[in-house]
Design a protein around this nucleic acid. Structure first.
Lengths: 353, 353
DNA sequence: CTGTTAGCGCCTTCAG
DNA sequence: CTGAAGGCGCTAACAG
């Protein structure tokens, strides 16, 4: 290789000089504008750019143009398949539109979400996609709203995935409706004594799904008393621990619903470790339909959320101008998938006294 | 909220004016330099910045300073838990060092990897981490090398995860050694008639693991003939299909080794669909020890690769200057984990004829 | 310690 | 269709 001038790439001016044209002409030829350039010159310029391996400096372009081409995606934990699936959808759409995505993984810290949004504001990012559930704590919600406002004031767009709480374009996941549908299906299959691994108290997604379960069971006339709710982290280990607690209480339970698949998998492990045969001794259901978990045995009954599609849809908001000035809302609902983990039970006929 | 001047954020000059100081002083006070600013003025400046919700324009800083703070991470598929775990490690380290990470998901297209590297060069990214296996095709490898050279010439650093093929700092995964160790363990457990779900022919990671299996079995005196290798995509469905083919050939097989966990999970599903009882009828082993798959039943024997650590280590190369001018290499090895999917077998005593 | 003044690389009127 | 010139927001000598 020819020893190129170290540590810096060719500049537009160098290209222009090599091609024997002015800076402006080179700019027009290389980095589109609505102006045209004569064929002869353009060829010369393109050739010069090729020779010098010229790539426009996107940062400088952004400074001159006043806006950048980066979109930020903020998730809670990129290693969690829920978020990595959403991320995959976002990446697909971004690729199609030629935009760059910068990733933030907050590890479930609301403060980090805010910090990351500020970092994105420094980058003058054109949009930020906030995936992952809001937290109920009003103080942090207010902080978030403040940073969101600043980000928007700086010319950026904010898109939320989950709940419509901060007044921005939102993909609303119909968690409660999905939970309700699942509960009703389980009752239809003959289950009468449910318990729930309810996740963290402060997490709205978890709360909504729980409320959905409660709705569904109530409507079907099945009791789900508060002592049958087991709170804990929204993770595999959280599910394991919650299940251990549940088992230790020796409640009369015929099915356990996790508020997500990952927790439910932890619960399955706990059941096995305690000698419970699945699904004979106990039925289990999750929420999300995580792809990596579809080959579990017994296969998990769950509520399928179209995660990749959700990511793509969120991104579409970035590239679709909002005609009205009101935030847009798109609702996405889940679909109950009955699998082996919740076989039909002989229904105990309860005779009213 | 006060209606801020629409669509743009405060500028350093505005902060300086509000504080009644010069541009340079404001710059020094807000965006560290080695120079100091008097306490009185600094307080005034900080206050002005707070009032205006000032965030420095990182793009402009990058242009002025000549280098940016973004690091690119290129993976094959962010939805694949293998890559999302590596990404999690990268994100952790990046967070600690205050750098931004932009993500590229190539969907296993070598061309997209090159395109993404070019995009990163436009951003004047300080480094690019190329996770995921190289492909054996020499033409695309040459293209990649060319873009890597251009990226480095532009002042960026390239780090590869997997194989040391393009002459850059590399985290080398000891896939072959891991495969060899797994094969030997299986023989020690009594397995004598292996088959392999070998993944794509062109993928070096898959090939190395396969070679490791072959080494290990050969050393232990167990034959693994070519008709016992089943190629196909590196995915869950690829594993399923390969397993179906294997079953249809009615070979005499006592254990099947996938070249990664995800494929092996597909194989487990295929076994169940064909009425094979696991692990009694057949033993199965994978590679990677994907966290989300640790609760499968039967639990999968595999080679644990420390994926998050790998991501963090790759990132450490970004922030650790290289003293010598030779590319650095750090080897990471896997650890065989024996679980239920490969129980010890009564060893058939073969009497040499 | 503070202010003045060139740039950084590029875009975009404004003249020709 | 082409070129000259000013400006984007910020940093970094260079003077006081």
């Amino acid at each position: 290789m020819t020893p190129s001038r170290s540590d810096r790439s060719a500049t537009l001016l160098e290209v222009a000089n090599l091609a024997g044209v002015s800076l402006a002409t080179a700019s027009r030829a290389l980095n589109g504008s609505n102006r045209r350039v004569g064929d002869v010159l353009r060829e010369r310029i393109l050739e010069a750019a090729r020779v010098l391996q010229y790539e426009p400096n996107a940062q400088a372009q952004a400074v001159a143009r006043g806006r950048s081409n980066v979109v930020g995606l903020v998730v809670q934990d990129i290693a969690d398949p829920y978020f990595s699936s959403i991320a995959a959808g976002v990446m697909n759409a971004a690729e199609r539109h030629g935009l760059l995505v910068t990733l933030g993984s907050t590890m479930r810290s609301a403060q980090r979400e805010i910090d990351y949004l500020a970092a994105l504001r420094r980058q003058r990012g054109r949009a930020a996609i906030l995936a992952g559930s809001r937290v109920v704590d009003p103080a942090t919600l207010a902080d978030l709203k403040r940073e969101v406002a600043a980000f928007e004031a700086s010319g950026g767009q904010v898109i939320a995935v989950s709940q419509n709480l901060i007044g921005v374009d939102t993909i609303v996941l119909q968690n409660r409706a999905g939970g309700r549908a699942l509960a009703r299906e389980l009752v239809a299959l003959g289950y009468q004594r449910p318990a729930v691994l309810a996740g963290p108290r402060g997490l709205i997604t978890a709360r909504d799904r729980l409320h959905g379960y409660q709705d569904g069971f109530a409507e079907a006339g099945v009791k789900l008393s508060p002592d049958r709710l087991f709170h804990g982290p929204f993770t595999r280990d959280g599910g394991y621990e919650a299940m251990v607690t549940l088992i230790s209480q020796k409640l009369d339970v015929d099915c356990v619903l996790g508020v997500n698949d990952v927790m439910t998998v932890g619960a399955m492990a706990a059941c096995r470790d305690h000698g419970l045969a699945l699904p004979d001794d106990l039925a289990l259901a999750g929420f999300d339909d995580i792809e990596t978990l579809r080959d579990l045995s017994p296969a998990l009954t769950t509520v399928r959320m179209p995660l990749e599609l959700i990511g793509e849809t969120a991104f579409e908001f970035v590239v679709t101008p909002n005609p009205r000035d009101k935030p847009r809302v798109r609702r996405v609902s889940g679909e109950v998938i009955i699998r082996e983990s919740t076989p039909a039970r002989a229904r105990s006929i309860l005779i009213p006294s």
